[in-house]
Nucleic acid binder design. Sequence first.
DNA 1: TGTACTGTAATAAAAAAAATTACAGATGAA
DNA 2: TTCATCTGTAATTTTTTTTATTACAGTACA
Lengths: 135, 135
Amino acid sequence: MNGRFQIAVHILTLLHSAGGESLSSDFMAGSININPVLVRKELSSLRKAGLVQSKEGHTGGYSLAKPAKQISMADVYKAVEQAPLLGKARNTPNPACTIGKQINQHLNTLNKQLNDAVIKQLGYQTLEQFCNQFK
Amino acid sequence: MNGRFQIAVHILTLLHSAGGESLSSDFMAGSININPVLVRKELSSLRKAGLVQSKEGHTGGYSLAKPAKQISMADVYKAVEQAPLLGKARNTPNPACTIGKQINQHLNTLNKQLNDAVIKQLGYQTLEQFCNQFK
DNA sequence: TGTACTGTAATAAAAAAAATTACAGATGAA
DNA sequence: TTCATCTGTAATTTTTTTTATTACAGTACA
């Protein structure tokens, strides 16, 4: 179980708190307390999802690509989550068994329904609302 | 990310399909295609949650502790899930940073809200309904 | 033109998950 | 009664995943 979502939220919160100023991956790594390369990797996902923008070179860094009001926690989730919510089984059920043969298909359906519910729930909260909790 | 939920559902589906007959952990391990000890560990959680019952000894084995109609997918989730849905960060954010100092608290709140939503969603489906999908 | 960045790839180290081994205890069958 | 077949766990090893580290090419500005 990894912590990509947490890291992504932490990054976005830092960027929002910077109020438009751009931040470097090294600076953010210091607040999150993880390796800067991981931060850049996460930022790469967030950039591809259109949530942050980056600038290379001397005065480079990262900033939000759009107002925090227009970024929902569902957007963050969609940007970083890859594995099914309820975990991913590494086994291959016995195809000679009636249950084993079909179970993955039904579990996938369940996972999809749940994923939709989670995205809906996370869609209720914006990054701005999340950040406003900080005093 | 582990596959405990999948395994638990697989176990319960097998037990339901057995129609009251008890099954051994070895038999179930064969359908799921994982180690029998893992199956017994999972069954241990399910037993503690009141979803299955077991009998030791020669003609021992496992069976459902109540009708599949009275077991919801939320019950299964609650019986086996331990880690937060969106993953668990292993870092300790920098306490000298305003954001770092508070972020875990706010992420926990978010996680709790999401957990409630997931339990609600999973509560809509019973084990019986899940099993009825199998042909 | 050198310094401070981003962007990745490749590799190593650490942590988590799963498999395996081992064995005590229960229960019914031979 | 004793043996075979189970459950229930603990301890250990193996495998897989996650995170950290190293390395370096490319960009932009001072």
